Simulated scan of single mutants.
Amino acid sequence: MQINQAERDALYKVIYSRRDVRQDFLDTPIEQAVIERILQAAHHAPSVGFSQPWDFILVHQPATKQAIKQGYEAASAKSALQFSPELRQTYQSFKLEGIVEAPLGICVTCDRERNGPVVIGRTIKPEMDLYSTVCAIQNMWLAARAENIGLGWVSIIDDQVLRDALNIPQRLSIIGYLCLGYVSHFAEQPELEQFGWLAREDLKQLVHEEQWQDKYSHQQP
């Protein structure tokens, strides 16, 4: 199957306009058919040994979202203390989640025991199943953007909060909690770039020919 130029251009448009959405969610419900398309896109991600180790927990209930939001707030307060005093206030001014506002939450897990102890491609790098699940999230993110739905990944939360709220067994690895919903607009730039927290790296500094070259010393905030 060949991809024509219009289809190619549409893919790149989706990639470049994808955003980590934390705010501006609308209360417009997402139709079941749209949710199904997004989940099917995730389910068609590449996976090591065709293991398909992912599961998706859909969260609609306000009480469940509120429990997860409380977990986020506790984790965010703890996280703020890790920044220097001059950056802490800026960090605390950011809105980094839309747990309650988004109509739909999706928790993505990885079953590392699926298909038994030996999986093609995991014999040397056993963490490949985790990476496969991240690929599923990326597919979901791009599919959501193609549906004009915002998606935000909430990483500032302890796994145990999600286990307790969503009855997730200890044997499953929690990869991410995602907030999905239609939004009033998509930002032209990623928010942290827009706010001056970090700039987009120059791709030329990140590409190496044949061997690694130490091109610059990276500075973290």
Rank of each mutant, 00 (worst) to 15 (best):
V48C: 01
L104G: 11
L96P: 00
E97G: 10
V100M: 15
F56N: 05
Q52H: 11
E73K: 05
L104A: 04
Y91T: 08
L96A: 09
K95P: 01
G71W: 13
L96T: 14
H60W: 08
P62M: 00
W54G: 03
A80N: 04
F94Q: 15
L104T: 10
K78C: 03
S47G: 00
A75P: 06
L58D: 04
F94Y: 15
K69E: 13
G105Y: 13
P85S: 08
A45L: 02
T64K: 14
F50C: 01
T109E: 04
P62C: 02
H60A: 05
S93W: 15
K78V: 04
E101M: 07
F56Q: 08
K69I: 05
I106W: 12
V100K: 15
W54N: 07
K65M: 02
G98F: 09
A77D: 14
G71F: 13
I68C: 10
T90A: 14
L58V: 15
E101I: 08
G98W: 11
S51L: 07
T90Q: 14
Q52T: 11
V48E: 00
K78I: 02
R88A: 08
Y72S: 02
Q66M: 08
P53C: 03
A45P: 01
Q70N: 13
S93M: 13
S76P: 00
P62Y: 00
F50D: 01
G98Y: 10
S51F: 00
V108I: 11
A75D: 07
V108Q: 04
G105E: 06
V108P: 05
L87F: 14
G105M: 10
Q89H: 15
K69R: 14
F83C: 09
V108W: 07
A74S: 07
Q66W: 08
E97V: 08
G98M: 12
L58N: 06
V100T: 15
A74I: 10
A77P: 02
A102V: 12
A45D: 03
F50S: 00
A80F: 06
I99G: 06
K65S: 02
H44S: 10
Q89E: 15
R88W: 09
C107D: 03
E101F: 09
C107Q: 03
A67P: 04
A67I: 03
Q66N: 12
A75N: 08
F56I: 10
F56R: 04
A75K: 10
D55L: 03
F50T: 00
L87V: 07
V100I: 15
S47F: 01
Q61V: 07
G105H: 12
P53Q: 03
D55V: 01
Q61Y: 09
P62D: 00
E73C: 04
E73I: 05
Q52I: 05
F94P: 07
Q89S: 15
W54H: 08
T64S: 04
